[in-house]
Amino acid sequence: MLSFFKFVGNKGFMSQKKIHEDQKYVDGLVNNNAFIIQAIYDKFAPKVINYIKQNSGDADNAQDIIQDTIITIYNQGSQKGLQLTCPFDAYFFLLCKRKWLNVLKKSNNKEVTINEETLSKDDDAYQLSFETSVFEDKQKLFNQMFQKLGDACKDLLQATFKIKSMEEVAKSLNVSYAYARKKKSLCIGQLTKLVKESPTFNQLNY
């Protein structure tokens, strides 16, 4: 919020936050651009690898953390049109670091304090990386809850989102259009309920 007002103060009323030129990395991931993926490794991986090695990890750990982080950015970029308002470097490093500290926390039962150092809460990199972490937690929960659905709902949703046209879905399942449409909303409704009732729901910033 703070930085938003700062920006408005500088640039006048209607302007939005400026998209950082490093948005090209996010767009490159979404478009599965091998050149960009390679560039992310070449430019941003060494810092993460160093950090993990200095904090009880090894190169294999770094490889997993980096890969998971890139997949998360790809997922968020593909679904939510992730807009980078800070350098990719800071954003990416914060995400990897937080992910690694969470792994340490889980595996050692050690008390790990996540020290965000010089970053204050209104820093764009901090905020964006935090949003991405929450996004990732949501995706995980959504996928877990989907597995809890009954087969009828699973099949219907699989067909609905694969085929896209509801008329064709209805035809392929041999039901009426109205029924397929109603069933779809009730199945997603059931998922909504499962998500709301899950024990981790309160950590998801709804």
């Binding site: 959504f142 699989q158 989102f161 896209k164 409704g189 909504t192």
Partner: peptide
């Protein structure tokens, strides 16, 4: 509930579609 519903739809679209 609507926010969750909408996000679930986007997620399914991405994961399955």
């Amino acid at each position: 509930a609507f926010t969750i519903y909408k996000q679930l739809s986007t997620n399914l679209e991405h994961e399955i579609g």
